[in-house]
């Protein structure tokens, strides 16, 4: 019974932490991009505009909720819910801190400690594209959402393959699908980024495409198709789509750190719980910052360029890299 109670407590805590993170990520994004463009950004409400996201949230809660006449009403209502539910579901298998040993066993800082955690992440990343697809479909034949949804569908299918193929290398090396086992395997060797630099780079590129962030934000390309799949949405319903996207950004950054950069181990001063916690979140925060940095830096790729990069360049490289990893592991090369 205590498992159920602990599960509920962890569920509520992670739900709150992730929600607060998303709230202040909007502030962080606006502030960082403003500094990069020589502006000040939000500054009026609170210390350096820190309460701006709260004001935004209150404002969007009181906005009029418009529903297009020709839309499929139920699916239109369901689409943002699918988006947000699947995004939260992914965040529930990510460990938020290194595990600690207690008298009654090992305490894990993730809501669900699964042996197939990586597969779970992929399953629900795949499902999260339905939110976007149904937002486009149910908008009543409106053209921009429809084109945006089609782009999201094609982009998700192509780049999830590359993401999976690059993740396969650390899995092969550690022979586990569990995040904590993979991190433990990296403490015996170097971090996997030194063994798998190619997989690291392919994951890094595919990460941006799967999250739908600049330079691969084709589903919501503002300058081409208005705002893509959520043109017809308003108020908090519309807010749920970027909300889900920010959670996916957090999750993908965390997986990057866990699989390639040794999770909660550091080059020096490692071992204790707090050292691990600090190292882990420094690394995750860097990758979250990388998303914002890319947003302010890169132009958007064209659609055919996106498909060419995915299928003609990244996919052959990723497949060859898996062959190389398998060969190296079977032969038992000295540095593997």
């Amino acid at each position: 019974m205590s498992i159920v109670i602990w599960g509920i407590i962890k569920f509520i805590v992670v739900l709150s932490i992730v929600s607060v993170y998303v709230l202040f990520m909007t502030w962080f994004d606006r502030k960082v991009i403003a500094r990069m463009q020589n502006r000040v950004g939000p500054k009026l409400i609170g210390f350096h505009g820190l309460w701006q996201p709260l004001a935004d949230a209150i404002k969007s809660l009181w906005k009029e909720d418009t529903v297009p006449d020709k839309s499929y009403k139920f699916m239109f209502w369901l689409a943002p819910i699918i988006s947000i539910t699947t995004a939260f579901a992914i965040s529930f298998v990510i460990p938020f801190a290194p595990p600690i040993k207690t008298a009654s066993g090992i305490f894990h800082f993730s809501v669900a400690h699964l042996n197939v955690a990586i597969l779970f992440v992929f399953a629900f990343l795949g499902l999260s594209s339905y939110g976007v697809l149904y937002a486009g479909i149910s908008s009543g034949g409106s053209k921009y959402p429809f084109i945006g949804a089609q782009r999201e569908g094609a982009q998700m299918i192509s780049y999830e393959i590359i993401l999976a193929l690059s993740i396969l290398n650390p899995i092969l090396m550690s022979q586990s699908l569990n995040f904590e086992t993979i991190v433990a395997a990296q403490t015996h060797h170097l971090w996997y980024v030194f063994y798998q630099p190619v997989a690291f780079i392919t994951y890094l590129i595919a990460m941006f495409a799967v999250a739908g962030k600049v330079p691969f934000d084709l589903p919501e390309a503002e300058s081409e198709i208005c705002c893509g799949y959520f043109v017809e949405y308003s108020g908090m319903k519309m807010g749920l789509f970027p909300f889900a996207q920010y959670i996916v950004v957090l999750v993908l950054s965390a997986i990057m750190v866990l699989l390639f950069l040794g999770g909660w181990t550091g080059p020096f001063w490692s071992g204790g719980f707090f050292a691990g916690l600090i190292w882990y979140w420094i690394k995750v925060a860097f990758f979250i910052f990388l998303f914002t940095w890319a947003w302010a830096t890169f132009p958007r790729y064209r659609y055919d360029q996106l498909m060419d990069i995915g299928w003609k360049i990244l996919l052959p490289i990723a497949v060859l890299n898996i062959f190389w990893t398998g060969f190296a592991l079977t032969v038992g090369l000295p540095f593997f």
Binding site: V116, L119, F122, A123, L125, G126, Y130, I137
Partner: peptide, 16 residues
Amino acid sequence: MLQIIVYAGAIAVLIL
């Protein structure tokens, strides 16, 4: 998990 990844995640997206 394979059931979700392959059927719900990939094949249904293709049908859609």
